[in-house]
């Protein structure tokens, strides 16, 4: 009896897509993976909105309003939601702005920087507004699992996913556990 394929969605919020690149580093396991799963919203498919899924993989932290919408869409549709990488887990590099006041930060970048005379902070309604702090995703929605690393290595991602797909609670052994 063949099991129905699991549906997976992936996205990057305030991240660098490094975790997605690492995902591709599972190399030949990709062939095994496509036997077991199919992709919903993901940079791999270019599907724009997430439908009902079994697993959602989130890279990056939450830095703006759009991140919040996307994250909620994933949470609403994915039975299992996974934070992938340092930024999703603790805010990561983008969160290093958290000790700065957002207004001062924006003005520094758009108004006061050398060579930017008369500049102003962009206010196009198309652009998502920034939150005053960058948050890990578990501070905005409920998260089921976390895959640490910056990025997590291909083998780490593969071990985690293969455990999950097989119905085992995923565990990372020492060589697969990294925060850097």
């Amino acid at each position: 009896m063949t099991r129905p394929k699991l549906r997976i969605a992936t996205t990057s919020l305030a991240g660098c897509f490094g975790c997605h690149m690492s995902f591709l580093d599972i190399d030949e396991h990709l062939f095994e993976l496509v036997e077991l799963v199919e992709f919903d919203r993901s940079p791999l498919t270019d599907i724009k909105h997430c439908g009902p899924c079994d697993i959602g993989l989130i890279e990056g932290g939450v830095c703006n309003a759009e991140n919040v919408h996307v994250l909620r869409e994933f949470r609403n549709n994915c039975k299992t939601l996974i934070a992938v990488g340092a930024c999703a887990i603790n805010g990561g590099l983008p969160a290093q702005r958290n000790h700065l006041e957002l207004g001062a930060c924006l003005r520094e970048v758009y108004e006061f920087r050398d060579g930017l005379s008369g500049g102003q902070v962009p206010n196009d309604p198309e652009l998502p507004l920034l939150l005053d702090k960058v948050h890990p995703i578990h501070e905005v929605v409920r998260v089921d699992y976390f895959i640490p690393g910056c990025p997590p290595s291909g083998p780490t991602i593969w071990k985690f996913l293969s455990d999950l797909i097989a119905g085992r609670t995923p565990r990372l052994t020492h060589s697969l556990m990294h925060f850097d």
Binding site: G103, R107, P122
Partner: peptide
């Protein structure tokens, strides 16, 4: 948490 950004961008 968006209030500062609203203020800065008007």
């Amino acid at each position: 948490a968006l209030a500062t950004a609203r203020r800065i961008t008007g």
